[in-house]
Design a protein around this nucleic acid. Structure first.
Length: 588
RNA sequence: GCACCUGUAGCUCAGUGGAUAGAGCAGUGGUUUCCGGUACCAUGUGCGGGGGUUCGAUUCCCUUCAGGUGUGCCA
């Protein structure tokens, strides 16, 4: 479906052409002076030089050719050469009627759907999710949803960290604690037990303990390194342990992610890429890309024009073990083989920028991907506390994700119960839904690439630019609509008519921007643009609501029109928050 | 050292090669024939500093200052 801007742009282009100017100058943008007009065209000024003519003369010529257009209600030429425009009310209403009947609300979906793999989440098994995992999950999930709405085939992969030194550390620590387990008995020939010899909470305690010890105890560290290698070589006892760790851990992870309304299509892990490593490495050697340097096997990835030295990509350590880079490369091989995607997008901490630069260059240089396969990196910033430093618990420890969510839910619950006159039978669930909106909107309303301050009080507030405020607006609309239904109103045959006041027209104009906003958000991988948009729509709606009687409207056609507008507003807002990854309750 | 990122109002954040740079919070003062006042309305002498390109720069380029991050055998 065409955008409102397209209609306007076409009119302008025609007018420019008719007046003898380049039609490309007829670009229309939203006015930055809403007190003067709704839209503006600055093409006359851009064309002044080319045609050696005063901008306002060009603008006058163009305006003369716009007269009688059904798209515009007001066309004005101002000082230097601005062409100020207001839309025609009837035309605007007609546009919204089209939008109502468009299942994608004016979004132009992809003609050729692409396959896009988004690598986000990135938790390590046996380690609890902490706040550092929050952003990847939230941002990745939103981009996935936006991509799907755009019509693409988007595959979300959690990409578990399950194969590195951490596993060796856990195994080593377990052996210290429970040396009698059969997994450590090389002579053991029987069936290993089905039950894991630890619970998730034990596991979560074991890893940090092992990690800390390895930093001060060199023998211990070497043991862990050896265990890692033995695991990677498929030692049966260790493999059995690894299976236990995976099972216990993944169950717990799924529970936590579902609490965040985050779902992965693939639960792939680093270990899944292992089978692809030997061939890949061999081929890189054979084809002359990989060479030995200081005992390690590396691929040079520096390129001409680099402003800094890019270290080579390391495939194998001097002890022959693979590492993070190797796994990531092999994962690319695996993904090409299984899915042949048009794009692989990594939503990870921006501090990994250089690492992925190396991986991408290496993959491209050695032909792991097609020339047309896009490898992209969306690095997000750190989540800081109010003090501007990385978010911590009160006593300075790492904040577990489930505790953070729990705190927010509790805060939300308190507010809902306190401020509520009507008894809510389901305040707990409402608190969860609203709390999630607070967390996600708080995160997504910032540019992903920047660090941001996570402020619980601000995010959970019902006032201002927050998730709860957006939800409040939706709930308010729902409430009016259900009252309308109770009064016997039908939603059949309701038609949006031209606006009856300025605030309604403003709301209508805001609604027309949905399609463009979603498309931009997708192109730029910028969910915060959707946040800014729904905040605008919510404000426009609340102003309109404040000024306009809806249910007490006497003229049934006008009333029906307002109800239809409310329904569209609700649909736009609900669709938007779904793209952001949260939802609205019926009451709050 | 080198590289990258960031620097916008007291605080938290948007934003665009163009007309008077916007929101929220905090502060002050208002609003109801009330469909949810957890709302609406009013109130803001700020683009780190200095050059340059341009008719026009907060936006592009250079430089400088400040903060953050990264920089071959962790992930």
């Amino acid at each position: 479906m065409k955008k409102l801007n397209d209609y306007m742009g076409e009119e302008l282009a025609k007018a420019f052409e008719a007046a003898g100017y380049d039609p490309a100058l007829g670009k229309v943008v939203i006015s930055n002076r809403p007190d003067l007009c709704e839209y503006q065209c600055n093409g006359a000024m851009a064309g002044a030089k080319k045609y050696k003519k005063a901008p306002f003369m060009i603008a006058d010529d163009v305006a003369a050719n716009l007269a009688g257009s059904r798209v515009f209600d007001k066309i004005e030429v101002v000082k230097p050469g601005f062409i100020n425009l207001d839309t025609d009310k009837e035309f605007l209403a007609e546009y919204l009627r089209d939008m109502v009947s468009d299942p994608y609300l004016s979004v132009t979906r992809a003609e050729k759907p692409e396959t896009i793999i988004i690598d986000y989440g990135g938790p390590n098994v046996a380690k609890p999710l902490h706040v550092g995992h929050l952003r990847s999950a939230i941002i990745g999930e939103s981009i996935k949803r936006i991509g799907r709405y755009m019509g693409h085939n988007v595959i979300g992969d959690v990409h578990l960290g399950d194969w590195g030194l951490q596993m060796g550390l856990i195994i080593t620590e377990l052996r210290c604690r429970k040396p009698d387990l059969p997994y450590f008995d090389d002579e053991f020939k029987g069936e290993y037990p089905e039950e894991a010899p630890f619970t998730i909470s034990e596991l979560e305690e074991i890893y940090p303990a092992a990690s800390a010890r390895s930093k001060v105890d060199e023998d211990y560290r070497n043991e862990a390194l050896e265990a890692t290698e033995q695991l990677q070589n498929g030692k049966p006892g260790y493999m059995a342990l690894w299976n236990h760790i995976m099972k216990v851990s993944v169950t717990d992870l799924k529970k936590n992610y579902s609490r965040l309304n985050v779902e992965f299509d693939l639960w792939k892990a680093e270990s899944d890429a292992q089978p692809y490593i030997p061939d890949m490495v061999q081929r890189m050697k054979d084809e002359g890309y990989a060479y030995e340097d200081q005992g390690a096997l590396v691929v040079d990835v520096s390129e001409e024009g680099d402003t800094k030295e890019i270290p080579p990509c390391m495939l194998l350590k001097s002890d022959g073990a693979s590492l993070y880079t190797t796994t990531d490369l092999a994962t690319i091989v695996e993904r090409m083989k299984l899915y042949d995607p048009d794009e692989m997008l990594y939503v990870v901490d921006k501090r990994q920028d250089l690492h992925f630069e190396q991986v991408f260059r290496c993959a491209r240089k050695t032909g792991l991907v097609k020339d047309t396969t896009r490898l992209s990196f969306l690095g997000f910033g750190t989540m800081n506390g109010k003090d501007g430093k990385p978010f911590k618990t009160r006593d300075g420890g790492v904040m577990r994700l489930e505790n953070l969510i729990g705190d927010i839910e509790q805060e939300m619950f308190k507010k809902i119960v306190e401020n509520r006159s009507v008894k809510d039978t389901d305040a707990e669930n409402t608190a969860k839904v609203v709390g999630l909106s607070a967390i996600k909107y708080g995160d997504l309303s910032n540019q992903a690439t920047k660090d941001y301050v996570f402020d619980v009080d601000r995010f959970t507030s019902f006032e201002g630019n927050t998730g709860p405020y957006i939800l409040y607006t939706i709930v308010r609309i729902k409430s009016i609509l259900s009252r309308y239904a109770e009064e016997g109103g039908s939603d059949e045959g309701l038609v949006i008519l031209p606006a009856i006041n300025e605030s309604q027209k403003n709301l209508m104009l805001r609604l027309t921007a949905f399609g463009q906003t979603v498309e931009n958000a997708f192109d730029e991988k910028a969910p915060h643009k959707i946040c800014a948009y729904i905040y605008e729509v919510s404000n426009a709606f609340n102003s309109f609501y404040h000024e306009t009687k809806i249910l007490s409207q006497e003229d049934p056609e006008v009333k029906g029109s307002l109800i239809a507008l409310l329904a569209l507003t609700k649909k736009v807002l609900e669709t938007s928050i779904d793209l952001l990854g949260f939802s609205a309750p019926d009451r709050m």
